[in-house]
Structures are given as C-alpha cells and as structure tokens.
C-alpha cells in the first residue's frame, strides 16, 4: 500500500493559501492595478485555503471511518 496522496496535496495547498492570504492582507492596493483592482492574492488565497482544508477533511473522515 502507498500513503494517502491527499495528505501532501492538502498540506501544500493549505500552506499556499495561507501565504497568499497573508500577502493579500499586508500589501497595498497599488500592487493590484494589473489584476483589474482585484486583490487576487487575498481572494484566490482563500480559495486555495478552502481547497487544502477540504482535502485534509476527506483524509480525516476516511481515517475515522477506518478506525471504527
């Protein structure tokens, strides 16, 4: 058996999301001129964070099922 691939994917994207959210919260609006005024770091960072956490959530759920 191999290990659960959802673990590294979940961790990686949670970290990516966190980095982008922190960056989005700490940078000024000027940075986002080319992205049509949208703070894409913050918005997309949140999306990545949710994706990563959902992956980890799946792992957590299937582990609990396996224990039962």
């Amino acid at each position: 058996m191999n290990f659960d691939l959802r673990v590294p994917i979940g961790i990686l994207f949670t970290l990516f999301g966190t980095i982008l959210v922190v960056l989005g919260l700490t940078t000024s609006q000027e940075l986002y001129q080319a992205s049509l005024g949208i703070n894409v770091n913050l918005d997309w960072g949140l999306a990545l964070l949710v994706f990563g956490l959902v992956m980890l959530g799946f792992v957590f759920r299937s582990n609990r099922k396996a224990h039962r």
Partner: peptide, 11 residues
C-alpha cells in the same frame, strides 16, 4: 507576468 501580482505569480 502581466496579470498576476507577486505571490500569485509564484504560484
């Protein structure tokens, strides 16, 4: 390069 600010650009 054009649309992504530093951060998203890295991604």
């Amino acid at each position: 390069k054009h649309y992504f600010p530093t951060g998203l650009l890295g991604l």
